[in-house]
Each structure stands twice: as structure tokens, then as C-alpha cells.
Simulated assay, not measured.
Amino acid sequence: MKDITSRYLLSLPEGMDTDDEKAKEVKGLTVVTAAVFIVGEIAGSGVLALPSAVEGAGWIGIVMLFLCCFISTYTGDVLGTAWCIIQERYEQYRGHIRYPYPAIGEITYGKPGRPIAVGAALATGTACIILTTNMVVDKKNVPEVVHDAPGFVSFFTAFGTICFAFGGHPAFPTFQTDMKDHKQFGKAVFLAYMIVLAMYIPVSVAGYYVYGRDTQANILQTVSPGPMLVTVQILVTLHLFCGFIIIINPFSQEVEEIFKIPHHFGWKRCLLRTAIVALVLFGAETVPKFGAILALVGGSTISILAFICPPLFYLKLAKMEGDWEKIDVPLHKRVALYEIVLVGLVAGVASTYSAFAGLLSPGAFTVPCYVNLTAASGS
């Protein structure tokens, strides 16, 4: 256990203890500020693909939005409970932990700044309001709305996109660790997801009923041009500037750990993080298929991290024996958790297959911009 612990514990300032009394003296996030962090991490570019996802799934896509939201809320709370259990059982995890989510996984199955979060959340919220207004205004210029009948591929592609829009669980334990009272994390998750749902529903419903089959994978390519569209584009860009820092930081820290790069500021850290951002940019320019990429990530990675892992972590911790009080999970709760795992597994596989089918379909790929630049320079 000491070897595992050494991989995740941060270096604490000299003289700082990790016991409960010292932890209480450290200022942390409240329920509201933790919720703001969660909203800033979750709500972003995914909202732009939701109208197209709802169109692909049919009106049932609106129901899927609510279901994914509430399931994600529940599994987020379950993940928070699992982290609290670990902190109660293992004293070495009561301080500042560098990688909480991987630590939970390894224990169970073996081997930020406030202006940034507030800016990301406010930018997305304002963008959703303006975008919805723009679509409502467009309604009078759309004489007839036609909807395509959903098929297997379109339905599960929509599921993957919706999962992506509600993903964010890997960062949850980090936010929970920074709270004043870790056990209040469930309230922060619930508040955050209600805010996110309030952003998503108007945009999704308006897009579905105003544009129908004409809805593009990115709703910004569908709405009429004008000042409102420009404002939304600016706000979404602002969110990406703010939210990208929150999202990319845990992954960057994990890569730094692999390459044994010091945690303090230095040229190695700058070089590595620059390379990571360059790879992200290269991937975006190489595969610019917006909707299919979101569906692929949502159906594979997000469904595993949000729907499958949290229930399994919690159930495994409940079964583990040691010098601690035994956790008795009621039958109805076990059944609910296993049902979530099963739904996440089946739907995740189906949506991943659908996303691949969409990516491999004729005409799915467009020539990357750097290929055009190379051809132009060669001619």
C-alpha cells in the first residue's frame, strides 16, 4: 500500500500535517464553489452537438438527456462516497492527493484557480441563453420542419454524444478533495448537474423543433448569422480557454508522472505540456468530424468512467474486509448499481460501434487543412 500511496500523494508544505484536525483548518471549496468547478468542467462544446444528437435519436433523445443527467448525478455521488470511504480507511489519503480517481481504481482493483472555473461556467451559461434566443428567432424563417426517423446508428451515436456532454467524473474526486467537507460532495454534484441540465434542455429542444433534419453536428453551423451567433462563438471560445486548463491538467500531470518530470515549474514541464496541446490540435485538424468524435469519446471513455467504474468501485469497497466497519449495501441499491453498469456497458459498446461506423462511412473524412497547405506549397 505504501508503494501505491507514494504515486499519488502531493508534497505538502513543511510542517503541514494530514490528520483531520489540521485538515479542518485548511480553507476549501464550499458546496456552491465546488458545483461551479463541476459546471465549468462539464458544460462546454458538448452542448453544441446536443441538438443534432436529439434529432438523431428522435424525441426520445430529450428523455435520454434527463436520464443521462440523473444517472451521472447518481454515479457522481457514488464516486464521492467511494472516495470518502477510502479517506476514512486509509489515513495516508486524507491529505492532498495528486490523482484521486486513479487511486480509487488501484485500491479497489489493483494496479486550479476559481476565476477560471467561474469564467468557464458563466461563458457557457450565457452562450446557451443567447443561442436559444437565436434559434427561437430563426423559427419564423423556417416554414416547415422535417424529422428523420431514428435508426440504430443514429440513435446510439446520439447516446454517445449525450454521454460526452455529461461526462466529467475523473475530475470529481479532485474537486471533492479541495472541499471543506468532503461528505457534502453529493450536494455539489446535484447542484452542478441541475445547472448543466438547465443549460442543455433549452438548446436541445429549440434545435430539434426549429431545424429538424437540417440540424448540423455543430449547431453553430445551423443558426442564422448575425450578432448573436458572433457573441456565442466568442463565449464558447472563452469557455474553451478557461475549461481547457481544468480538463487537460489531470492528464498532463499523469504524463508528467510517467516521464518523471518535476512538479515545479521548469522547461521540461513547459515542453511536455506544449507537446500535449500540439497533439490535441493535430488530432482536431486531422479528424474534424465534430459529431462522430464526441460520440466515440462519449460512448467509449465517458460511459466507462461515468457509468461503469463508479458503481464497481463502490461495490468493491463494500466487499473489502479489513480493520474498518463493514458496509452493508441494500439489495435495491446493489440492483440499481448493477443495472447502471449493464446499461453503460451495452449502450457504450453500441454507441462506440455506431461512432466507428459513422467515421468509416463514405465521405466521413475531409482533407485536413495541413494537407491542402502542403499541396499548395508544392504546386
Rank of each mutant, 00 (worst) to 15 (best):
V223S: 06
F241C: 13
W267P: 09
D328P: 00
M179S: 05
L360N: 13
S11Q: 14
K316S: 14
E339A: 13
D214Q: 05
G113E: 07
Y193L: 15
I246E: 00
V47A: 14
S379C: 06
N141Y: 12
V36N: 04
V203Q: 01
K289C: 06
C68G: 02
F37W: 08
E325M: 04
W324S: 11
K22L: 05
L12T: 08
G212K: 06
C242R: 03
L122A: 15
A158G: 13
I248G: 07
D323G: 03
N218F: 04
Y208A: 10
I234H: 02
T5A: 14
A165R: 02
V137D: 10
F155N: 03
Y109R: 12
K187A: 13
L342V: 13
D138Y: 05
A198F: 11
F152R: 02
D3A: 11
L229V: 10
V145P: 02
D3H: 12
V329G: 06
F66K: 03
K140T: 14
E144H: 14
L315K: 03
K140S: 15
L240S: 15
D77G: 06
Y208H: 08
Q176I: 01
T81M: 09
I162M: 10
E91V: 00
A120H: 06
D77F: 07
F307Y: 13
T177S: 13
T18W: 00
C369Q: 12
L294F: 13
P311G: 12
H332L: 07
M199N: 11
N372A: 03
A350L: 15
N249D: 09
A123M: 07
S379Q: 03
G105K: 03
C128I: 10
R89W: 05
V287W: 03
